[in-house]
Protein backbone atom coordinates (compact mmCIF):
# COMPACT_ATOMS: atom_id res chain seq x y z
CA UNK A 1 0.00 0.00 0.00
CA UNK A 2 1.26 3.46 -0.83
CA UNK A 3 1.86 6.06 1.81
CA UNK A 4 -1.46 7.52 2.97
CA UNK A 5 -2.11 11.19 2.28
CA UNK A 6 -3.31 11.71 5.80
CA UNK A 7 -2.62 9.51 8.79
CA UNK A 8 -4.10 9.90 12.25
CA UNK A 9 -2.34 7.98 14.98
CA UNK A 10 -4.07 7.48 18.30
CA UNK A 11 -5.57 10.94 18.24
CA UNK A 12 -7.06 12.07 21.55
CA UNK A 13 -8.77 15.29 22.48
CA UNK A 14 -9.75 16.10 26.03
CA UNK A 15 -11.51 19.37 26.76
CA UNK A 16 -10.95 20.70 30.25
CA UNK A 17 -13.75 22.71 31.74
CA UNK A 18 -13.21 24.72 34.87
CA UNK A 19 -16.22 25.40 37.04
CA UNK A 20 -16.63 28.57 39.06
CA UNK A 21 -15.35 26.85 42.17
CA UNK A 22 -12.11 25.94 40.43
CA UNK A 23 -13.10 22.32 39.98
CA UNK A 24 -12.06 20.78 36.71
CA UNK A 25 -14.18 18.50 34.61
CA UNK A 26 -12.94 16.62 31.59
CA UNK A 27 -14.71 15.84 28.36
CA UNK A 28 -13.09 13.16 26.30
CA UNK A 29 -14.33 14.27 22.86
CA UNK A 30 -12.08 12.16 20.65
CA UNK A 31 -10.56 8.95 21.87
CA UNK A 32 -7.73 6.97 20.32
CA UNK A 33 -8.60 7.42 16.66
CA UNK A 34 -6.28 5.82 14.14
CA UNK A 35 -7.12 6.33 10.48
CA UNK A 36 -5.37 6.24 7.13
CA UNK A 37 -6.80 8.27 4.29
CA UNK A 38 -5.47 7.51 0.83
CA UNK A 39 -5.02 10.07 -1.92
CA UNK A 40 -8.23 10.50 -3.91
CA UNK A 41 -10.33 8.65 -1.40
CA UNK A 42 -13.62 9.89 0.05
CA UNK A 43 -14.01 8.93 3.67
CA UNK A 44 -17.35 9.40 5.37
CA UNK A 45 -17.63 9.99 9.10
CA UNK A 46 -21.05 9.42 10.57
CA UNK A 47 -22.53 9.65 14.06
CA UNK A 48 -24.96 11.63 16.20
CA UNK A 49 -24.39 15.13 17.54
CA UNK A 50 -21.77 15.09 20.23
CA UNK A 51 -19.97 11.99 19.01
CA UNK A 52 -16.82 13.97 18.21
CA UNK A 53 -16.98 14.08 14.43
CA UNK A 54 -16.68 17.85 14.16
CA UNK A 55 -13.97 17.94 16.83
CA UNK A 56 -12.04 15.45 14.74
CA UNK A 57 -12.38 17.79 11.75
CA UNK A 58 -11.10 20.72 13.82
CA UNK A 59 -8.14 18.63 14.93
CA UNK A 60 -7.21 17.75 11.35
CA UNK A 61 -7.11 21.40 10.29
CA UNK A 62 -5.54 22.25 13.66
CA UNK A 63 -8.22 24.65 14.82
CA UNK A 64 -7.89 22.65 18.02
CA UNK A 65 -4.67 21.22 19.39
CA UNK A 66 -4.37 17.54 20.05
CA UNK A 67 -4.14 16.21 23.59
CA UNK A 68 -2.34 13.07 22.45
CA UNK A 69 -1.46 11.38 19.18
CA UNK A 70 -0.05 12.36 15.84
CA UNK A 71 -1.28 13.74 12.55
CA UNK A 72 0.90 12.95 9.57
CA UNK A 73 0.11 14.81 6.38
CA UNK A 74 1.75 13.56 3.21
CA UNK A 75 4.67 12.12 5.18
CA UNK A 76 5.26 15.14 7.45
CA UNK A 77 4.32 15.21 11.09
CA UNK A 78 2.22 18.34 11.54
CA UNK A 79 1.16 17.64 15.13
CA UNK A 80 3.37 20.16 16.86
CA UNK A 81 3.77 22.81 14.15
CA UNK A 82 3.58 26.43 15.30
CA UNK A 83 0.85 28.73 14.05
CA UNK A 84 3.04 30.40 11.43
CA UNK A 85 4.29 27.09 10.07
CA UNK A 86 0.70 25.95 9.68
CA UNK A 87 0.04 28.11 6.62
CA UNK A 88 1.04 25.46 4.09
CA UNK A 89 -1.16 22.97 5.93
CA UNK A 90 -4.11 25.35 5.79
CA UNK A 91 -3.63 25.68 2.07
CA UNK A 92 -3.47 21.95 1.66
CA UNK A 93 -6.52 21.13 3.78
CA UNK A 94 -9.71 23.19 3.50
CA UNK A 95 -13.08 22.95 5.15
CA UNK A 96 -16.72 23.62 4.24
CA UNK A 97 -18.98 24.22 7.22
CA UNK A 98 -22.54 23.17 7.90
CA UNK A 99 -24.35 26.47 8.04
CA UNK A 100 -23.98 28.55 4.87
CA UNK A 101 -25.79 31.41 6.64
CA UNK A 102 -23.24 31.96 9.38
CA UNK A 103 -20.07 30.86 7.63
CA UNK A 104 -20.03 33.63 5.01
CA UNK A 105 -19.36 37.18 6.16
CA UNK A 106 -22.49 39.27 5.47
CA UNK A 107 -20.41 42.41 4.93
CA UNK A 108 -18.23 41.08 2.12
CA UNK A 109 -19.18 40.65 -1.51
CA UNK A 110 -18.75 37.24 -3.07
CA UNK A 111 -15.60 38.48 -4.81
CA UNK A 112 -14.12 39.66 -1.51
CA UNK A 113 -15.00 36.37 0.13
CA UNK A 114 -13.34 34.38 -2.62
CA UNK A 115 -10.21 36.52 -3.03
CA UNK A 116 -9.40 36.77 0.66
CA UNK A 117 -7.70 33.36 0.84
CA UNK A 118 -5.80 34.17 -2.36
CA UNK A 119 -4.48 37.43 -0.91
CA UNK A 120 -3.23 35.61 2.15
CA UNK A 121 -1.87 32.47 0.54
CA UNK A 122 -0.64 33.52 -2.90
CA UNK A 123 1.07 36.38 -4.69
CA UNK A 124 -1.29 36.68 -7.62
CA UNK A 125 -2.02 40.03 -9.30
CA UNK A 126 -5.48 41.55 -9.14
CA UNK A 127 -6.34 40.51 -12.68
CA UNK A 128 -5.16 36.98 -12.09
CA UNK A 129 -7.23 36.75 -8.94
CA UNK A 130 -10.32 38.00 -10.74
CA UNK A 131 -9.86 35.43 -13.50
CA UNK A 132 -9.36 32.67 -10.99
CA UNK A 133 -12.38 33.59 -8.92
CA UNK A 134 -14.58 33.77 -12.02
CA UNK A 135 -13.41 30.33 -13.11
CA UNK A 136 -14.09 28.94 -9.65
CA UNK A 137 -17.61 30.27 -9.58
CA UNK A 138 -18.29 28.65 -12.93
CA UNK A 139 -16.85 25.42 -11.59
CA UNK A 140 -19.46 25.36 -8.83
CA UNK A 141 -22.25 26.18 -11.28
CA UNK A 142 -22.65 29.92 -10.73
CA UNK A 143 -21.76 32.80 -13.00
CA UNK A 144 -19.57 35.87 -12.75
CA UNK A 145 -22.54 38.20 -12.30
CA UNK A 146 -22.68 37.01 -8.69
CA UNK A 147 -19.30 38.51 -7.83
CA UNK A 148 -20.57 41.93 -6.78
CA UNK A 149 -23.44 40.62 -4.73
CA UNK A 150 -23.65 39.92 -1.00
CA UNK A 151 -24.36 36.54 0.62
CA UNK A 152 -27.84 37.54 1.81
CA UNK A 153 -28.97 37.77 -1.82
CA UNK A 154 -28.47 34.04 -2.31
CA UNK A 155 -30.42 30.96 -1.29
CA UNK A 156 -28.98 28.32 1.03
CA UNK A 157 -27.88 26.08 -1.83
CA UNK A 158 -26.14 28.92 -3.65
CA UNK A 159 -24.39 30.02 -0.48
CA UNK A 160 -23.11 26.52 0.04
CA UNK A 161 -21.77 26.62 -3.53
CA UNK A 162 -19.94 29.84 -2.64
CA UNK A 163 -18.53 28.18 0.50
CA UNK A 164 -17.29 25.30 -1.64
CA UNK A 165 -15.73 27.72 -4.13
CA UNK A 166 -14.00 29.53 -1.27
CA UNK A 167 -12.59 26.26 0.04
CA UNK A 168 -11.25 25.47 -3.44
CA UNK A 169 -9.46 28.81 -4.00
CA UNK A 170 -6.18 27.63 -2.51
CA UNK A 171 -6.24 24.43 -4.58
CA UNK A 172 -6.38 22.07 -1.60
CA UNK A 173 -5.82 18.34 -1.81
CA UNK A 174 -8.08 17.51 1.07
CA UNK A 175 -11.54 18.95 1.52
CA UNK A 176 -13.27 18.46 4.83
CA UNK A 177 -17.04 18.72 4.48
CA UNK A 178 -18.70 19.16 7.85
CA UNK A 179 -22.41 18.42 7.33
CA UNK A 180 -22.49 20.53 4.16
CA UNK A 181 -26.08 19.66 3.32
CA UNK A 182 -27.81 19.41 6.71
CA UNK A 183 -29.22 22.92 6.47
CA UNK A 184 -30.58 22.44 2.95
CA UNK A 185 -33.81 21.17 1.41
CA UNK A 186 -33.68 17.66 -0.02
CA UNK A 187 -33.97 18.89 -3.59
CA UNK A 188 -31.09 21.33 -3.08
CA UNK A 189 -29.13 18.77 -1.11
CA UNK A 190 -29.19 16.57 -4.19
CA UNK A 191 -27.75 19.43 -6.29
CA UNK A 192 -24.91 20.00 -3.83
CA UNK A 193 -24.13 16.28 -3.50
CA UNK A 194 -23.97 15.91 -7.29
CA UNK A 195 -21.68 18.94 -7.47
CA UNK A 196 -19.36 17.45 -4.85
CA UNK A 197 -19.12 14.18 -6.75
CA UNK A 198 -18.34 16.06 -9.97
CA UNK A 199 -15.68 18.23 -8.35
CA UNK A 200 -13.98 15.24 -6.82
CA UNK A 201 -13.60 13.63 -10.22
CA UNK A 202 -12.52 16.80 -11.99
CA UNK A 203 -10.01 17.99 -9.40
CA UNK A 204 -8.89 14.63 -7.95
CA UNK A 205 -9.77 15.73 -4.44
CA UNK A 206 -9.66 13.75 -1.24
CA UNK A 207 -12.82 14.14 0.84
CA UNK A 208 -13.54 13.76 4.50
CA UNK A 209 -17.32 13.94 4.59
CA UNK A 210 -19.05 14.34 7.93
CA UNK A 211 -22.78 13.80 8.42
CA UNK A 212 -25.33 12.26 10.73
CA UNK A 213 -27.23 10.80 7.79
CA UNK A 214 -25.81 7.49 6.57
CA UNK A 215 -27.67 7.63 3.27
CA UNK A 216 -25.97 10.93 2.40
CA UNK A 217 -22.55 9.68 3.50
CA UNK A 218 -22.92 6.56 1.45
CA UNK A 219 -23.70 8.63 -1.61
CA UNK A 220 -20.39 10.51 -1.43
CA UNK A 221 -17.88 8.25 0.26
CA UNK A 222 -15.97 5.10 -0.60
CA UNK A 223 -15.31 4.16 3.02
CA UNK A 224 -17.34 5.07 6.07
CA UNK A 225 -16.31 5.37 9.70
CA UNK A 226 -19.08 5.25 12.29
CA UNK A 227 -18.27 7.21 15.45
CA UNK A 228 -19.81 6.92 18.87
CA UNK A 229 -18.66 8.84 21.95
CA UNK A 230 -15.37 9.88 20.38
CA UNK A 231 -14.44 6.45 19.11
CA UNK A 232 -14.69 4.71 15.78
CA UNK A 233 -16.96 1.73 16.33
CA UNK A 234 -17.12 0.48 12.75
CA UNK A 235 -15.07 1.22 9.64
CA UNK A 236 -15.41 -0.31 6.21
CA UNK A 237 -16.51 0.14 2.60
CA UNK A 238 -19.62 2.35 2.53
CA UNK A 239 -21.60 -0.27 0.64
CA UNK A 240 -20.85 -2.88 3.31
CA UNK A 241 -21.70 -0.52 6.15
CA UNK A 242 -25.04 0.38 4.59
CA UNK A 243 -26.15 -3.05 3.43
CA UNK A 244 -24.51 -5.38 5.94
CA UNK A 245 -23.88 -3.34 9.07
CA UNK A 246 -22.28 -5.23 11.94
CA UNK A 247 -22.16 -2.90 14.91
CA UNK A 248 -25.47 -2.57 16.78
CA UNK A 249 -25.05 1.23 16.70
CA UNK A 250 -24.68 1.28 12.92
CA UNK A 251 -27.80 -0.84 12.72
CA UNK A 252 -29.64 1.63 14.92
CA UNK A 253 -28.57 4.50 12.66
CA UNK A 254 -29.77 2.70 9.56
CA UNK A 255 -33.04 1.68 11.17
CA UNK A 256 -33.67 5.34 11.99
CA UNK A 257 -33.26 6.54 8.40
CA UNK A 258 -36.56 7.74 7.07
CA UNK A 259 -37.49 6.21 3.75
CA UNK A 260 -40.51 5.88 1.57
CA UNK A 261 -42.22 2.57 2.21
CA UNK A 262 -40.56 2.07 5.58
CA UNK A 263 -42.77 1.73 8.63
CA UNK A 264 -42.00 3.63 11.77
CA UNK A 265 -40.85 1.48 14.67
CA UNK A 266 -43.13 1.78 17.68
CA UNK A 267 -41.60 3.54 20.68
CA UNK A 268 -40.41 0.80 22.93
CA UNK A 269 -37.99 2.18 25.46
CA UNK A 270 -38.72 5.22 27.55
CA UNK A 271 -36.09 7.84 27.02
CA UNK A 272 -33.81 8.71 29.85
CA UNK A 273 -31.86 11.88 30.25
CA UNK A 274 -28.79 9.90 31.27
CA UNK A 275 -29.17 7.16 28.71
CA UNK A 276 -26.99 8.77 26.09
CA UNK A 277 -24.14 9.49 28.47
CA UNK A 278 -21.25 7.37 27.29
CA UNK A 279 -19.74 5.11 29.86
CA UNK A 280 -16.18 5.58 31.03
CA UNK A 281 -15.78 1.89 31.78
CA UNK A 282 -16.40 -0.75 29.18
CA UNK A 283 -18.09 -0.15 25.87
CA UNK A 284 -19.42 3.41 25.49
CA UNK A 285 -22.54 2.10 23.78
CA UNK A 286 -23.54 -0.38 26.51
CA UNK A 287 -26.56 1.62 27.76
CA UNK A 288 -28.28 1.55 24.39
CA UNK A 289 -27.02 -1.77 23.09
CA UNK A 290 -29.37 -4.75 22.65
CA UNK A 291 -26.44 -7.21 22.70
CA UNK A 292 -24.92 -5.97 25.97
CA UNK A 293 -23.39 -8.54 28.34
CA UNK A 294 -20.94 -8.61 31.25
CA UNK A 295 -17.80 -8.15 29.22
CA UNK A 296 -19.17 -4.99 27.59
CA UNK A 297 -19.53 -3.41 31.03
CA UNK A 298 -15.97 -4.00 32.11
CA UNK A 299 -13.76 -3.95 29.04
CA UNK A 300 -13.64 -1.44 26.21
CA UNK A 301 -13.75 -3.26 22.87
CA UNK A 302 -10.84 -2.32 20.54
CA UNK A 303 -11.29 -1.57 16.83
CA UNK A 304 -10.22 -4.85 15.26
CA UNK A 305 -10.36 -6.25 11.76
CA UNK A 306 -13.46 -8.37 11.29
CA UNK A 307 -13.10 -9.06 7.60
CA UNK A 308 -10.43 -7.70 5.26
CA UNK A 309 -11.02 -3.95 5.11
CA UNK A 310 -13.90 -4.03 7.59
CA UNK A 311 -13.13 -3.04 11.19
CA UNK A 312 -15.35 -3.34 14.22
CA UNK A 313 -15.23 -2.45 17.90
CA UNK A 314 -17.76 -4.76 19.54
CA UNK A 315 -17.63 -7.79 21.81
CA UNK A 316 -21.12 -8.93 20.94
CA UNK A 317 -20.77 -9.46 17.19
CA UNK A 318 -18.81 -12.59 16.38
CA UNK A 319 -18.14 -14.46 13.20
CA UNK A 320 -20.75 -17.12 12.67
Amino acid sequence: MTLPLLRLENVDKVFVKKTMMGKKSYIHAVRGITLDIQRGEALGIVGESGCGKSTLASLIIRLETLTRGKIILDGTDVTSLKEKDLRPLRRFVQIVFQDPYSSLSPRMTVEEILTEPLKIMTKLSKAEMHAKVTALLELVGMNASCLDRYPHEFSGGQRQRISIARALTTEPEILILDEPTSALDVSVQAQVLNLLNDLRQKLHLTYIFISHNLAVVKYISDRTAVMYAGQIVELGPSEKIMLEPLHPYTRELIAALPAVGKKLKPLTKAADMTENVAQERGCPYQNRCPLVDLRCKSERPPLAQFEPGHFLACWGVTKS
Binding site: V186, A190, Q191, L193, Y219, E239, V260
Partner: peptide
Protein backbone atom coordinates in the same frame (compact mmCIF):
# COMPACT_ATOMS: atom_id res chain seq x y z
CA UNK B 1 -38.68 14.96 -8.57
CA UNK B 2 -38.90 15.34 -4.78
CA UNK B 3 -39.01 11.58 -4.38
CA UNK B 4 -36.03 11.09 -6.67
CA UNK B 5 -33.95 13.62 -4.71
CA UNK B 6 -33.87 11.55 -1.52
CA UNK B 7 -30.56 9.75 -1.19
CA UNK B 8 -31.44 6.24 -0.18
CA UNK B 9 -30.38 2.67 -0.49
CA UNK B 10 -29.24 2.28 -4.06
CA UNK B 11 -29.29 -1.39 -4.95
CA UNK B 12 -25.99 -3.19 -5.29
CA UNK B 13 -24.23 -2.56 -8.57
CA UNK B 14 -26.11 0.66 -9.12
CA UNK B 15 -23.37 2.46 -7.23
CA UNK B 16 -23.04 6.26 -7.50
CA UNK B 17 -26.12 6.94 -9.49
CA UNK B 18 -26.58 10.60 -10.19
CA UNK B 19 -29.06 11.91 -7.64
CA UNK B 20 -31.95 13.59 -9.40
CA UNK B 21 -31.66 17.17 -8.30
CA UNK B 22 -34.35 19.65 -9.24
CA UNK B 23 -32.59 22.43 -11.14
Amino acid sequence: ALLAAIPGFTPKGAERLELCAIP
